[in-house]
Amino acid sequence: MTDTPMKDGPLFEVRAEAVIAAPPEAVYATVSDLPRCGEWSEECNGGEWISGAPGTVGAVFRGENFRSPDVVAWAPVVRGTWHTEAEVVAAEPGRRFGWAMRDSAGRAQESVWSYELAAGNEADSTVLVHSFWMGRATEGIRGITAEMTEAERTEFFSAWAAKLTAEMAATVQRVKGVVEKS
């Protein structure tokens, strides 16, 4: 399998947006607190900081995740509980928070999740954009698609992109609910 089995360029570029009735600093304080992500994420149940100062560039977070059997059920993806490590790659309070998924050797991969924040049009509001970008296939994606035909890989990437799109839209709405209740 090649690094980019479907096309030249990134494998995934997905984003979702919500306007939150709170200032960017308050929204940032929530989304950068990764141990709380189970309150809004479809797959990540939370986790813990395992190295570095929490929420700063270079800090590493160990996430506990769960995926049900019906998610792209035909594909050989991890089911049930599994763990990941992510390294913070952007930490600009009130503006941007992002992390890259690490491979089994602890290297950051071209699999970056981020939140970008900007002042909204209303007083004390924030436009929150949640993004996911994957350049070259990660260690996990290479394993999942290793035995697939080209047609199966195409189907997998289409189904996975739809899954990501739906889950990220739900995530920003959950973040909105958590922040606006605080």
Rank of each mutant, 00 (worst) to 15 (best):
R136H: 09
E42A: 14
S51V: 06
L11D: 01
E43R: 13
V175C: 03
E122T: 14
A151Q: 11
R15L: 07
E13W: 07
Q109T: 02
G177K: 13
P24A: 09
S68Y: 11
V19A: 10
R107Q: 14
P54V: 06
D3Y: 03
T165Q: 12
A22G: 08
G177D: 13
E43K: 11
F61G: 00
R67C: 14
R96C: 12
G120V: 01
F156C: 00
G38Q: 05
V60I: 13
R67N: 12
D8S: 14
P5Q: 10
Y28I: 04
R36E: 08
N45I: 14
R153D: 02
E147Y: 09
E180V: 07
A169F: 03
S125V: 03
E147V: 09
A22P: 01
W113C: 01
W160G: 02
S32T: 03
Y28D: 00
W49Q: 05
D33N: 15
D3I: 08
A29R: 06
A105Q: 10
D70P: 00
G46N: 06
S131Q: 06
R36N: 10
V175F: 01
A22L: 06
V127S: 07
A75I: 05
R62K: 14
E85P: 04
R136K: 15
M1Q: 11
G120Q: 05
I20T: 03
E167M: 07
E39K: 08
E92P: 07
A108T: 08
I144S: 02
R142C: 14
P35M: 09
T56F: 05
G177T: 11
P10N: 14
A159Q: 11
